[in-house]
Design a protein around this nucleic acid. Structure first.
Length: 649
DNA sequence: CTTTGCATTATTTTT
DNA sequence: TAATGCAAAG
């Protein structure tokens, strides 16, 4: 079959134009369900089919999962086999695709040495970052109430990102707003990261931009390579990502071809520094921009779309667009106000069971909520009613203690100077090295023979792991780590929880083995990089027949036949912390828009009159969002009074 | 040094 | 509620 048929057939005129306009800057405003991913993948395939080298294409996505999907779909379009993660670098047949953070790692591993970044640096996640800050606060004997680690982390992150904006007066002002202790903590934090060869999430982007600014030759090299740049979810890029995009795409009048895709109505990450004005001002930044708007929705029924449009229209800061569909009207939305969160969950369980009896698949259903804490009642209800479910997010896999511990051993093997990891495992499992002795060791104080002896057990393990790092495959290294350190015995303490933890550890080994095919040190490096950057959303397994339950944020980019959006209560959704701030209120509404537009056919909205949150019962008014949906689209259910709470359904 | 138990406390969303 | 911190006992 002629591949061109595959690439250009089944595209509507707007999509086709977005795929085939390959010269000059291009802005694609893509409403929910309008075939955005389709446009991106077909465009990449089209570029390649036009003789453009895959090496010359860079595609940046929001999640690793999106990148993975993109690779697979481009691969299918080009009739080549899909790639597994470790093949990415080995095989030049694919464009570079990944998140901004992964791009930062990619560039820094190659060229970071120009600005003094060692090849094997450690990536600190927010957890790691916070524990470093926490310790610094403690060391400096500051009041942890006045300097809350989480808050200080936030401020430091803001200060770091502000530097890049290069507005001196603003920066001065910024620093004046915080006590000088913050500056001290910040400085010590930076110093420690440098000494221990560690980069935090912010650094992955900031240092990359710093590198490109400081070394025009390096910048020129990558600019010459990536002549076609695609950025997905542009509305959720932050300032530094914007700068990186601009740098790589060269001067506005250059031969570079940049294309960004996004939707202001789906901007839901401003709390993380994203600025959707990046997309609003794209045409100003790239004056020759061609604008294409995708307004035909292929996902949802007319009713669902009308409801979503009605809600989002209440927002002021947006670019007007009108999503339409050729799909039938479909069933009305169902709104249920239940007595409490357990009844809400019980209702959902009943409805899911009913749908299943009519032949629906569990994997086509999703339950969405605003905050992770809301998952509990749902999980309990599903367990009680034997409904298989898959929880996305919550305590993420890589945030589990046992996983972080094992990872710390592996990271220590890769980077012997990684003190954050060393602190973590120096006495895990307990080997007689308490906090005092540990700090004595880090400060290189002289130790008594007894102390030295206790420390030597740890140092012996460390040395062996460093050797294993250079000679063994990652899964082998992980095994050596847990056996030598006695961690397995420590984990499996005979309790059922111990076996759960061990099961998690074994899951980790199966992840590591995916990298075993690479040559020893690189395999471990690739694995660690992946572990630091993946999220749970990346591991959604669509093959299992289970209901997906997750936050609305985690559902971004996904779609389901039936969607249960829950917790429509003032204070929950919209969240209390957003209610008084109009800009944040608009973000909550966009979040609502995202929730509604995940549904293809059936959409259930529910609320609880009372809800137990952190052990306390709250009474909440129904969410304003419920009132913003036109009545004629809704079938309002009476609260159901039966006490099916404890009974099987 | 390690374990235990009590008290405190902080609660959004996550690459 | 659950996670963490802290003090006291083992």
């Amino acid at each position: 079959m002629n591949p061109m048929n595959d690439i250009l057939s089944n595209l509507n005129p707007a999509q086709r134009e977005a795929v085939t306009t390959i010269n000059g800057p291009l802005l694609v405003i893509a409403g929910a369900g309008s075939g955005k991913t389709r446009v991106l993948t077909h465009r990449i395939a089209y570029l390649i089919s036009q003789g453009i080298q895959p090496d010359n294409i860079l595609a940046v996505t929001f999640t690793n999962k999106a990148a993975g999907e993109m690779k697979e779909r481009v691969g299918n379009l080009l009739k080549t086999p899909p790639l597994s993660p470790y093949q990415r670098e080995a095989w030049g047949g694919m464009p570079w695709m990944g998140t901004f953070h992964a791009l930062g790692v990619y560039l820094l591993r190659r060229d970071g040495h120009h600005i003094g970044i060692p090849r094997s640096f450690t990536i600190l996640d927010e957890d790691d970052t916070q524990s470093v800050i926490k310790r610094i606060i403690k060391e400096r004997q500051l009041d942890p109430k006045q300097f809350q680690p989480a808050r200080v982390r936030h401020i430091i992150s803001a200060l770091k990102n502000n530097q890049s904006k290069n507005k001196e007066y603003e920066q001065e002002e910024e620093e004046l707003r915080y006590p000088k202790e913050i500056t001290n903590i910040y400085q010590q934090y930076e110093k420690e990261l440098q000494e221990t060869h560690a980069l935090d999430f912010d650094d992955l982007l900031l240092k990359t931009v710093g590198l490109l600014h400081a070394h025009p030759d390096v910048l020129a090299k990558w600019q010459a390579q990536w002549r076609y740049i695609l950025v997905d979810e542009y509305q959720d890029t932050n300032h530094i990502q914007y700068t990186l995009t601009k740098l790589l795409s060269g001067p506005a009048d250059s031969e570079h071809n940049i294309m960004v895709v996004g939707d202001v109505d789906q901007a839901i990450y401003s709390w993380r520094g994203a600025d959707f004005r990046n997309i609003l001002s794209f045409e100003r930044d790239w004056p020759q921009t061609k604008l294409i708007t995708l307004e035909q929705n292929y996902r949802s029924t007319g009713i669902i779309l009308e409801a979503a449009n009605a809600v989002i229209q209440k927002n002021k800061e947006r670019k007007e667009k009108n999503l339409w569909t050729e799909r039938a009207e479909g069933p009305l939305l169902e709104i249920n106000v239940m007595e409490n969160e357990r009844e809400e969950a019980a209702f959902i369980a009943r409805e899911i069971t009913r749908l299943k009896r009519t032949g629906a698949k569990l994997r086509d259903m999703a339950v969405l909520y605003r905050t992770n804490a809301q998952s509990r009642a749902l999980e309990e209800s599903f367990l009680r009613n034997s409904i298989p479910y898959r929880l996305i997010g919550g305590v993420r896999f890589y945030e589990r203690k046992e996983i972080k511990d094992i990872l710390a051993y592996v990271r220590l093997a890769a980077n012997p100077r990684d003190r954050t990891s060393a602190r973590r495992v120096i006495n895990t499992p307990p080997r007689g090295i308490g906090a005092v002795l540990a700090e004595k060791y880090f400060a290189e104080k002289t130790l008594s023979p007894k102390e030295q002896a206790r420390l030597d057990t740890f140092l012996g393990i460390k040395k062996n792991l460093e050797t294993a790092y250079t000679t063994s495959a990652p899964s082998e290294l992980a095994h050596i780590a847990i056996i030598q350190s006695g961690y397995e015995t420590y984990l499996r303490d005979g309790t059922p929880e111990g076996e759960d933890r061990w099961a998690n550890a074994e899951e980790l080994f199966s992840v590591t083995s995916a990298y075993d095919a690479m040559d020893p040190p690189q395999g471990t490096d690739a694995f660690l990089e992946n572990a630091a950057l993946v999220s749970d959303a990346d591991s959604i397994d669509a093959s299992a027949d289970a209901v997906h339950i997750m936050t609305i944020h985690a559902a971004k980019g996904l779609e389901f036949e039936s969607v249960f959006a829950t917790g429509f209560e003032e204070g929950i959704f919209p969240h209390t912390l957003s209610i008084h701030e109009p800009a944040q209120m608009e973000e909550e509404r966009r979040l609502c828009y995202v929730a509604l537009t995940r549904a293809r056919t059936r959409l259930y909205l529910s609320a609880a009159q009372t809800r137990a949150i952190y052990g306390e019962v709250q009474w909440n008014e129904p969410s304003r969002f419920l009132r913003e949906i036109p009545e004629h689209l809704v079938q309002l259910q009476q609260p159901i009074e039966t006490n099916y709470l404890e009974t099987e359904i």
